[in-house]
């Protein structure tokens, strides 16, 4: 299957929280193939901003042929995307990487900050049997949408809502249990979730993030350390864009 690059029409944009934006894009060929946990590369219209920005899929609607991206404005490129207007076009390549494998009967989905969006499509894929544990600094986003497709437990760092503290504090306080863990979020959170998974002897899939150039596995910019020698790289490195971004937590050094 040839890789797809297309100029996707912007259907809608939204501001979900301070610095957190959403884009709904018309991208039928991408929606047709995509799965929860995959990502797309978004290209800037400015010629001096060369590299595509990798953004995870928050929503996939095969019937309507749309994809939804929710991202944090981190620099000039993502700021440009946040200013796109309905009817404008943005160049997209995807879907890229490998999605989450759907396992277990009582999955627990753990998202921290900007790691929350990819968990929404995963929660939908589990058809209501997932528990979602969402960790925010303070301001919440996407939470009500999670409530439509999963049981939701919330943690806020400032204690403004739900459990005060981290996602793991919420898991302990609310006695959230399951038979498989999925996590996406900042590295310290992924480390803590991995430790918890090992202690509880649960399978655990983490979605990793790193600066990318090509997004397709050629440039070797976005590697992560692995516990064993990888068959492709022949060293203890795997490519997050192509071999990931989802890995079994025990396979990677966090």
């Amino acid at each position: 299957m040839p890789k797809r690059i297309l100029d996707a029409g912007v259907i809608a944009r939204e501001k979900l929280a301070e610095g957190i934006f959403g884009l709904l894009l018309e991208a039928e060929p991408i929606a047709a193939e995509a799965a929860a946990g995959q990502f797309v590369s978004l290209y800037s219209a400015q010629a001096d901003r060369l590299l595509p920005r990798p953004i995870s899929l928050c929503g996939i609607d095969r019937e309507r042929g749309t994809i939804r991206l929710v991202y944090r404005v981190a620099g000039a490129g993502t700021k440009e995307f946040s200013e796109l207007l309905p009817g404008e076009k943005v160049r997209v390549m995807g879907p890229l990487g490998n999605g989450f494998p759907l396992k277990g009967s009582r999955p627990v989905l753990i998202g921290g900050g900007i790691g929350i969006p990819p968990m929404l499509e995963l929660a939908k894929a589990f058809g209501g049997r997932a528990a979602a544990v969402l960790g925010y600094r303070s301001e919440r986003f996407l939470e009500t949408e999670f409530e439509c497709v999963s049981r939701v437990y919330t943690a806020t760092e400032d204690g403004s809502f739900g459990t005060r503290g981290t996602v793991l504090d919420a898991i302990r306080q609310e006695k959230v249990s399951g038979d498989v863990l999925y996590a996406c979020g900042p590295l310290p959170m992924l480390r803590a979730v991995k430790e918890y998974a090992i202690r509880e002897n649960l399978p655990c899939y983490v979605s990793m993030e790193e600066r990318m150039a090509c997004g397709i596995g050629a440039c070797l910019a976005c590697v992560c350390r692995t516990t064993e020698t990888d068959a492709h790289s022949n060293v203890r490195n795997r490519r997050i864009c192509k071999d990931g971004p989802v890995f079994e937590a025990r396979e990677v050094e966090l």
């Binding site: 001096d48 060369l50 590299l51 490129g77 600066r211 150039a213 590697v223 022949n234 203890r236 490195n237």
Partner: peptide, 15 residues
């Protein structure tokens, strides 16, 4: 086999 450098391994610059 060489493992290469730690990440981040790339950064964007003007053009």
């Amino acid at each position: 086999p060489w493992e290469g450098n730690p990440t981040p391994r790339i950064a964007e610059t003007h053009s």
